[in-house]
Design a protein around this nucleic acid. Structure first.
Length: 606
DNA sequence: GTTAGGG
DNA sequence: CCCTAAC
């Protein structure tokens, strides 16, 4: 079920319910992480702190006045109120029935005196029960009643929207915060325009829980509008569409709040390792569909990436109570790759180079493109029904493609104030180039996000970070290109390294690209271990892999471990490039020999 | 910084 | 391949 904790921070009597990002295993099994670690607590506290600031900055402390920050794309050309109802119902179903929100969700609700409900999941309906007055009704029905009552009372909840026809739709828009808003007789009336905004109204608090990037997308929208990516010109910019946020302080708070949602501490590699059940900061890479190590696993053909239909199923779920659309995605088109490799290179190195490029592409942030009858569906706000995808006869004409998510970061967004950048954007920046200076607002970053740079063989330097110049000179390249250059054929030649490696904030360190050991490398390792013994990995490294900068002695130790394991299992169980049995025999022999030898040494003193 | 071992 | 305890 959904993972949610509610921690009472006691600021202005408000509580912060947070749906923490579960660990991968926890997501899968639906377990609830009981104890937040220190980082989590810290994030919560920061969240609470900002929330407190926000509340103080607003003159009104009336909890009835709730401001929704809405998904920009959810309201394109639709009736706001109806859309809200649909989305709300959808969210409620997703959240309570299916536990679909694995993303961090945060909201501020009036604290229920004496009810802290720590560690109570969202999926536990009693969580909501505590915020609803009715008894014996299901959650949705009671919530409907609440909304009706609120409406009757004539108070207003505003929904802010901006449009985005390009970026992913955010189907599941959080309303649960508002639902949990247990103020006496609050009202709800969705309005969009400033002229209907009552004078003197001061917003109370934004409420937001989204799949991923409500506000990020707004940022992107503005960026796109300022660029050439074809956003519909009639799409309002965020500020235009958010009269509530016209006050700069408020706006900033809202974005900082967003930042805090994203500051939820994960282990570093989690940024790279999102599985299909989670959208995340990093999950924007492709709606959380890919794990670089798992989904790029080659199943013999090196190009077809099998995917389940779960993603689409979830999206189809929102909107109405219509039946789910079940789709089977048999393969994805991978973005176009350009590979530059010497003609003297071996087929094997070519294969591996391509593999590296694909892996890197998949490791980058991806965007899912949808093709219907060969035509790209650009309007993310359309429902499946509207698009015709739900029709059986059209379903087989549906195609999915992976595109690098070119996220333009425009200096014109939000008065060039870096504070408006979400952490997601910052992370992208830091990945793109360390030469960027956030504070100075130099965001003229290459949109070429698929660029791969090769480790320099001569220098043996892994830490190639492209300069601003480098990236800008690549701006002329067409989209969706990855350039992989292989200057020489040796072990080093295969060390394709994404150029954002080690750039900027170490918190966003990237997991290293998987580089399977070649048979040659295995042989070198075996030979070295035979000579030096196990355990002297540093010496092994120096002896046999001194020039392979991407192989650390830890790698060698790990490889030996797996080699021993591989040698012990049956050939049928082995995966990857087959290691000659002769080598595996030597592995076992050496391992046994040195184990014995070490034992003797250890036993001697006794 | 290295090594060992669990994940 | 990552992480971390132990040295």
């Amino acid at each position: 079920m959904v993972l949610q904790k509610r921690l009472n921070y006691g600021f202005n009597g408000y509580q912060v319910p947070v749906i923490p990002r579960a660990s991968r295993s926890a997501r899968g099994r639906g377990t609830i992480k009981k104890k937040p670690d220190n980082n989590q607590i810290q994030a919560f506290e920061m969240l609470a702190s900002v929330a407190g600031n926000f509340l103080q900055k607003n003159e009104s402390s009336d909890p009835k006045n709730v401001v929704f920050v809405e998904d920009p794309c959810s309201f394109c050309g639709t009736n706001i109120k109806d859309k809200y109802e649909d989305e709300r119902r959808s969210f409620m179903r997703d959240s309570f029935d299916h536990g679909a929100c694995s993303e961090i969700a945060s909201a501020f609700v009036p604290s229920m005196q004496g009810k802290h409900d720590n560690h109570r999941g969202m999926g536990d309906s009693s969580f909501l029960d505590n915020h609803l007055e009715g008894q014996g009704q299901n959650v949705l029905e009671r919530e409907d009643e609440r909304i009706k009552r609120r409406s009757v009372n004539g108070k207003t909840i505003h929904i802010k929207g901006c449009s985005d026809g390009l970026i992913e739709p955010c189907h599941k828009v959080s309303k649960h915060c508002s639902l949990a808003n247990n103020a006496e007789k609050p009202s709800l009336e969705c309005r969009k325009h400033l002229d209907s905004f009552p004078n003197g109204f001061t917003s109370r608090k934004l409420v937001n829980r989204d799949d991923d990037e409500n506000l990020v997308r707004c940022t992107q929208l503005n960026s796109k509008n300022n660029n050439t990516s074809g956003a519909p010109p009639d799409m309002p910019k965020l500020k235009d569409a958010s009269p509530i946020m016209s006050d700069e302080n408020n706006s900033r708070d809202i974005f900082e709040f967003e930042n805090l949602q994203r500051m939820y501490p994960f282990k570093k590699r989690k940024f790279f390792n999102q599985n299909s059940s989670s959208t995340s900061d990093r999950g924007s890479q492709c709606q959380g569909m890919f794990d670089s190590s798992d989904t790029t696993r080659v199943n013999g053909t090196n190009h077809a990436i099998e995917e389940s239909s779960s993603i689409v199923g979830q999206q189809a779920h929102s909107g109405s109570r219509a039946c789910n659309v079940k789709l089977s995605i048999k393969s994805f088109k991978v973005p176009e790759l350009f590979i530059d490799i010497p003609e003297t290179a071996t087929i094997g190195s070519l294969k591996r180079t391509v593999m590296e490029a694909v892996t890197t592409i998949l490791g980058d942030e991806l965007h899912v493109g949808i093709l219907l009858q060969g035509k790209k569906v650009r309007d993310d706000s359309k429902t499946l029904i509207q698009t015709g995808i739900s029709q059986d006869d059209k379903r087989h004409r549906l195609g999915f493609m992976l595109e690098p998510r070119h996220t333009p970061i425009s200096p014109t967004s939000y008065n060039d104030d870096p504070c408006f950048l979400t952490t997601s954007s910052r992370k992208k920046l830091s990945r793109q180039s360390t030469s960027l200076t956030l504070q100075q607002g130099t965001y003229n970053v290459s949109k070429e996000r698929s660029m791969i740079k090769i480790e320099s063989c001569a220098k043996g330097d892994l830490n190639i970070v492209s300069s601003l110049e480098d990236t800008s000179t690549n701006n002329n390249m067409s989209k969706c290109r990855a350039l992989v250059a292989v200057p020489a054929i040796n072990m080093e030649a295969l060390a394709v390294v994404p150029f954002w490696r080690k750039s900027g904030n170490p918190d966003f360190a990237q997991r290293r690209i998987r580089r399977p050991f070649s048979v040659l490398e295995v042989e070198a390792l075996v030979q070295a271990v035979e000579k030096l013994r196990t355990g002297r990995w540093r010496d092994v490294k120096q002896r046999a892999f001194d020039h392979a900068k991407h192989r650390t002695y830890v790698d060698l130790k790990d490889k030996w471990k797996t080699l021993v394991h591989t040698a012990r299992i049956s050939p049928q169980q082995r995966r990857g490039e087959p290691v000659p049995q002769e080598l595996l025999d030597r592995v076992l022999a050496a391992h046994a020999y040195w184990s014995q030898h070490q034992c003797k040494h250890q036993l001697k003193p006794l």
